[in-house]
């Protein structure tokens, strides 16, 4: 074997085109459009900058102390966590229940059910938001009309006008659109659960609820970890529904961190401040993800 071959030079010469374009181009694009922007956002968060001319002034932690005193940021932060709690419960529980019911063949037309629940995953949140603006409209919306005719008139609300519930309305709409994802992941995961385990439980007389919660679910921890991670990132990046449905109204009660970034950076020309809020989103997402990984995964990403 020649030395040039041992060093891989022959391979490189033969495959220079593939090696260079195949590996280098994706790497450069990734670094330029994904890696560098993340670092630059953190860097910018220590500056005051209006975004237009070149004058960036280093102001240390000023943006962060401003954030501490900004009631909109606090509202947004609370709203992101409300959003997270709703989307950790509603779509995940619904998604898992549907996946289990489908796997256990407890309902007719499983393919139809799967399609119907998964379909909203393919809709843009702008379309979903517009759709629920129509459904939840206080005057002509189908939901209030339906509640009225079912004799549940006392449940009628101004779903977007009432500042106490508007953020939950948004979170539920988001959950409605998202349910297909946990369903698909759990559906795939349930297919991998050894059937002997479930057979044994069934023979011992365990009901479906018990099997679903006590026997199948503990075996699906890696799936749950992925689902919870997706849910965390989905709720931390919440933006589209707010932009199309409420624009933060009423009285800024439905703003979220992502929407504050957009407002401060591109409407108020406080780019450094926007970058500081971005950094907060980044730290929250990464911190929550790390927490979930350390608690739920325990080596599932190895190898």
């Amino acid at each position: 074997m020649q030395i040039s071959n041992m060093l891989g030079l022959d391979w490189l010469r033969q495959n220079a085109f593939v090696a260079v374009f195949g590996m280098a181009v994706p790497t450069i694009i990734f670094l330029l459009f994904v890696g560098y922007p993340i670092l630059y956002t953190v860097y910018l968060s220590f500056f005051s900058w209006n975004g237009a001319d070149g004058a960036k002034t280093f102001i240390g932690l000023q943006n962060y102390t401003d954030m501490w005193n900004d009631s909109y940021v606090w509202t947004a932060l609370k709203n992101n966590f409300r959003w997270l709690v709703v989307t950790l419960i509603f779509p995940v529980v619904a998604g898992y229940s549907i996946a289990y019911v489908l796997r256990a063949r407890l309902v007719p037309f499983p393919a139809l059910v799967r399609t119907v629940i998964f379909f909203p995953v393919t809709m843009s949140l702008i379309a979903v938001g517009l759709m629920f603006l129509l459904i939840l409209n206080p005057m002509f919306g189908a939901l209030n009309v339906a509640l009225e005719s079912l004799g549940l008139g006392f449940l009628i609300r101004e779903w977007f006008g009432d500042h106490r519930i508007a953020i939950y309305t948004l979170a539920f709409v988001s959950g409605w659109a998202f349910t297909g994802m946990p369903m698909i992941f759990y559906f795939a995961g349930l297919g991998d659960v050894p059937k002997e385990t479930l057979d044994a439980a069934r023979l011992e007389g365990a009901g479906h609820f018990r099997i679903a919660t006590r026997i199948a679910l503990p075996q699906l921890r890696p799936v749950t970890a992925v689902v919870v991670m997706l849910t965390i990132f989905e709720s931390m990046r919440a933006f589209d529904l707010v932009a199309v449905m409420t624009k933060g109204a009423p009285f800024g009660s439905t703003t979220v961190l992502g929407y504050q970034v957009y407002l401060e950076s591109f409407w108020n020309s406080r780019v450094g401040y926007g970058a500081a809020i971005s950094t907060l989103i980044l730290v929250l997402s990464a911190g929550l993800a790390a927490l979930v990984l350390s608690r739920l995964m325990k080596g599932a990403f190895d190898g």
């Binding site: 990734f30 330029l32 459009f33 994904v34 890696g35 560098y36 922007p37 993340i38 630059y40 956002t41 910018l44 975004g51 991670m229 990132f233 931390m236 990046r237 933006f239 961190l257 992502g258 970034v261 957009y262 950076s265 591109f266 780019v271 926007g274 970058a275 971005s278 950094t279 989103i281 980044l282 997402s285 993800a289 990403f301």
Partner: peptide
């Protein structure tokens, strides 16, 4: 590399808007 890929997958778009706009 996997960690970087997952970062790229999960990154909230808002956090990269300003530098991307600049680039």
């Amino acid at each position: 590399i996997f960690a970087l890929l997952l970062t790229g997958l999960m990154i909230p778009q808002q956090t990269v808007l300003i530098p991307l706009y600049d680039t």
